[in-house]
């Protein structure tokens, strides 16, 4: 029981980290809170499904196409909507929120509801560790979460583009004087964020069905992790994911599965009282205010 809880807790943490990663990356770089994030996630799930089942693409092509499409969508959202209201965070939030809502409910309107909307797993089958059975897909989720984290770390610390992104995150005006185009970087950060949402979608969605409600769930989970960890902090996201992931799994196994969602609520409540800006936020005291 304990071993199983530990393993499944890890998988759960990996899922949360995957969900929050893209949202956090976009915010960390361009300061845009993409409230259409959940919609992009669902959109990627459905587009992968359409590529596979309606258009009959091979699996790998379908997945890559879905990820690419999400990235393009991120670019489109940035240049079509956000750029026009850049610098007004509240407008950005409202516009992306409205857009996300429209996208998700459009799927509902076109009747994308039901159990037939599922994505296939990468490999079938399962593995047993001790007396715990775990399917390959969950292992892959764990591996991809770890791999993506490492890749993002290398990308932002050791590549030119990554460093440019970080420069923007530090100070937009001085980055401008070094010849970095903040609009391009902003669009790129949005594209990468959305592509990350798509990766999360094609990896995680095979565990269940693709449902419109899932989009709201994803946004809520991503926000919860970011609130607990501290917006814009990668370390914060990882710690918060592990914290919430394990406490959820322990609650589900030892108390009652129903109480699982409450864990995030309690975590948010505690963090807000103890350290309102999140566990690992690097916002300065003054900047926290508004």
């Amino acid at each position: 029981m304990l071993l199983g809880t530990l393993i499944y807790g890890f998988v759960n943490s990996a899922i949360l980290a995957l969900l929050a990663m893209g949202f956090n990356l976009t915010f960390g770089i361009s300061g845009v809170a993409n409230f259409a994030y959940g919609a992009v996630y669902i959109f990627s799930g459905f587009s992968a499904w359409i590529f596979l089942n309606t258009l009959g693409f091979p699996y790998v092509v379908a997945v890559l196409a879905a990820i690419l499409l999400a990235g393009l969508m991120g670019l489109a959202i940035y240049f079509g909507v956000i750029l026009r209201i850049k610098g007004m965070p509240l407008s950005e939030v409202m516009a992306t929120f409205g857009l996300g809502l429209a996208i998700m409910e459009l799927f509902r309107y076109f009747d994308f509801v039901g159990f037939r909307y599922t994505l296939p797993v990468f490999f079938d089958g399962s593995l047993s560790i001790g007396d715990v059975y775990i399917d390959y897909q969950r292992i892959i989720i764990g591996l991809i979460a770890v791999g993506l984290t490492a890749a993002l770390y290398l990308f932002t610390n050791h590549t030119r583009t990554g460093l440019a992104l970080r420069a923007i995150a530090q100070d937009e005006r001085s980055a401008l004087t070094f010849g970095i185009d903040p609009d391009l970087v902003g669009g790129l950060s949005m594209a990468i964020g959305c592509a990350l949402a798509a990766i999360a979608a094609v990896v995680i969605l095979p565990l269940g069905t693709i449902a419109v409600e899932g989009g709201y769930e994803v946004l809520i989970n991503a926000l919860a992790v970011c609130i607990v960890g501290g917006l814009g902090s990668t370390v914060g996201i990882l710690v918060a994911s592990v914290l919430i992931g394990y406490s959820q799994t322990f609650t589900a196994n030892y108390l009652e599965p129903h109480w699982m969602m409450l864990v995030s609520l309690i975590a948010i409540a505690i963090v807000l009282v103890v350290k309102p800006s999140g566990l690992f936020s690097h916002q300065k005291e003054l900047e926290e205010r508004i």
């Binding site: 809170a33 965070p89 926000l223 609130i227 129903h258 969602m261 948010i268 309102p276 926290e288």
Partner: peptide
């Protein structure tokens, strides 16, 4: 109250999350 100290974006996030979580609380 705790969110009022923070930037506006946190207020938006918390207000979006709270009602959905409270309905889960009632359910659970």
């Amino acid at each position: 109250l705790p969110v009022l100290r923070l930037r506006g974006i946190y207020f938006a996030m918390v207000t979006l999350v709270l009602p959905l979580m409270l309905s889960r609380l009632v359910e659970a």
